[in-house]
Amino acid sequence: MKLLVCISKVPDTNAKIAFTNNQTEYDTAGVQYIMNPYDEWYALVRALELKEALGGSVTLVHVGTADSETIIRKGLAIGADDAVRIDADPKSALFVAQQIAELARNEHYDIIFLGKETIDYNGAEIGAMVAEYLDLPYISYANHLEVNGTVASVTREIEGGAEEVEVNLPFVVSAAKGMAEQRIPNMRGIMMAKTKPLKVLPPVPIEDKAVVVMYQTPPAKSSVKLVAPENMDELVRLLHEEAKVI
């Protein structure tokens, strides 16, 4: 099994959200970055489990600049065999998808794993794009994945339930909670990660079609209106007459 896991870098959840350059750029000053939890906890770990059970290799791909190396090394410490970094600013979903597709086109992976979405831009777009570029099936928001020979059984989240599907390898899948359990890298993993191969490739140039022109922060909420615990009729009245939600 030749497996590819796409990993992204996102600001830590506690990072402040501010913008610079006339509100056109995210202010990265002092921001701590982490590996996107869906990529790290679910996509990567399930790929490693499959490799452990069925043999093969797990490669990481990341589109990003040199300062992403810490999160790539973390992925290697958790257990991936090698990594590729496409040396470019991941400026749009389409851009990132093309870079990943370009790599995968020549490498013939059996399964390409992504996280269900990044927790910063929450796009959930890249998986479908990669699948389309490569003319492969795509299963999004998968929370269970088994491989039997050349066939995979996958369960994916849908509104109010789940859908169970079967698909032949190769395919693209995005991982949601439930697909695996988070693994913490151990000392041996961290040591080994330092010498695992990390290849850096130049990006293929493409033109951006969707461009962020401005960021806004929503107006701060006015302070909470407290209602006495004895007075729930008043709360219901407020929800009906003032908030108009019931």
């Binding site: 959200i17 461009v211 022109v213 960021y215």
Partner: peptide, 12 residues
Amino acid sequence: VFSGKAIAEYEL
């Protein structure tokens, strides 16, 4: 974006 902590305006 950023889980509702900001709004991004895109030009298509």
